[in-house]
Simulated assay, not measured.
Amino acid sequence: GDLTLTCTGDLSRNRQVGLRLGRGENLENITRSLGMVAEGVKTTAAVHALALRLGIDAPITAAMHCVLYEGQPPHEALRTLMSRDLREE
């Protein structure tokens, strides 16, 4: 239920961040105006750092890190993810 609400509920802070990023707003303005923590933002940074430190390939986390912290437009991150070579995972 928690995952479903995060993905579909209008009160989900994580969803609001994603929708606003998709509209072209920058993360700093979004987080400032929310006034509350969207835990996925900081969790992405922590998981990305951990994956790098452990040498784990985490393409979705890497893509989200690029969008959140490196200013990559969401459509470019999606294109990068979808153009990865197929492999057993």
Rank of each mutant, 00 (worst) to 15 (best):
R13H: 13
L54F: 12
A38V: 00
E25D: 15
H48V: 03
I30A: 12
G18C: 12
M36H: 13
A49E: 14
L34S: 04
G35S: 03
R53H: 15
R32K: 14
P59T: 02
Q16P: 01
R15A: 03
I60S: 08
A38K: 05
L52E: 14
T43S: 15
Q16F: 01
E28T: 10
H48R: 07
A46H: 09
A49W: 04
R13S: 15
A58W: 06
E25K: 03
L50N: 01
R23L: 04
G22M: 06
A58M: 15
G40P: 05
G22S: 08
D57R: 15
L21F: 02
E25I: 05
T43R: 10
R15Y: 06
V41S: 05
T31N: 08
G35A: 02
L27V: 06
A58D: 09
L27T: 02
V37T: 15
R13G: 07
G55K: 06
K42I: 03
E28L: 02
R32W: 02
R20P: 05
R23I: 00
L19A: 02
N14V: 06
A46W: 04
T61A: 13
T43M: 11
A51G: 15
D57A: 15
E28P: 00
Q16Y: 00
L27M: 02
E25T: 06
A38I: 01
L34Q: 01
Q16T: 10
G22H: 08
T43D: 11
T61Q: 08
M36G: 00
I56G: 00
A49D: 15
H48Y: 14
V17K: 08
V17S: 09
R15F: 04
L21R: 03
Q16I: 08
R13C: 07
R23Q: 14
T43W: 09
I56Y: 12
R23S: 10
T43F: 09
K42F: 12
L21N: 03
P59L: 05
L50Y: 07
G55D: 10
R20E: 13
L52C: 10
L54R: 15
G35F: 01
L27Y: 03
A62L: 01
G22A: 09
R13E: 08
P59M: 06
R32H: 13
A49P: 02
R32F: 07
G24K: 04
I56Q: 10
R32L: 10
A62C: 09
Q16S: 08
L34P: 09
P59C: 05
K42R: 14
A62Q: 14
V47I: 15
E28C: 00
G40D: 07
R13F: 06
G18D: 02
N26Y: 08
H48S: 10
S33I: 01
G40N: 07
A46T: 10
A51Y: 04
G18Q: 02
A58V: 06
I30W: 12
L21S: 02
